[in-house]
């Protein structure tokens, strides 16, 4: 794969990746290269784990055309911060087999990690986590968005997230009456 030779920093990253087999190099849709711990990438992303196992990792930077550089930088940052934590497989203790580990509340560092993101960066990161099959990052980012809705009325949520109300007044009133217990505070 062709790497833009004009970008000294990217070239440097490539050399480091080749020299150190503990990492893999990922390439964003806008051509920027990022280095991530191979162990953390394989543990946190089912898609990257599959690519590593299948030998389809490109030393010159594995193309991730669906992910922009800002989101990929956050993905890599998250993986590297997570590198020393407990393997997610250890969370699965039930004898019944499930597709995913059970949801656990984000840890303090994970909260801080998503709190600093703008709304747009957060949504881009949700999409990147979903694309890469990163269940834990999906938990952390989606939990953050769910917290942004907590304590807000449907009107306020529509305003914050720019969503169009397609209910009629009558339809809303009907649901409110049917499920009055959920609306005591209003």
């Amino acid at each position: 794969m062709e790497v833009d030779k004009g970008k000294g920093e990217a070239e440097e990253t490539r050399k480091v990746a080749e020299a150190d087999r503990d990492t893999v190099t990922l390439k964003s849709s806008d051509g920027k290269l990022f280095e991530v711990s191979k162990e953390a990438a394989a543990r946190l992303s089912t898609v990257l784990a599959g690519m590593i196992a299948g030998g389809s990792i490109d030393d010159n930077g594995t193309d991730l055309k669906q992910i922009g550089s800002e989101a990929l930088e956050n993905v890599v940052d998250y993986c590297n911060k997570h590198a020393n934590s407990i393997p997610s497989a250890a969370l699965i203790s039930s004898s019944i087999s499930f597709n995913t580990a059970p949801f656990k509340e984000p840890e303090e560092w994970e909260r801080k990690f998503v709190d600093r993101l703008s709304h747009d960066a957060l949504f881009d990161l949700v999409e990147a986590a979903n694309f890469l099959g990163m269940e834990r990052l999906l938990d952390v980012t989606c939990h953050k968005i769910s917290e942004m809705m907590k304590g807000k009325s449907p009107d306020q949520i529509r305003e914050v997230f720019n969503i169009k109300n397609d209910y009629t007044k009558e339809e809303l009133e009907e649901i409110r009456q049917e499920l009055a217990w959920a609306f005591y505070d209003d």
Binding site: R158, I163, Y167, L172, R176, W181, A182, F183
Partner: peptide, 13 residues
């Protein structure tokens, strides 16, 4: 569970 009921009033989707 009330939180999920409340957000279901945001839009039909």
């Amino acid at each position: 569970p009330a939180l999920l009921v409340r957000v279901s009033l945001v839009c039909k989707r």
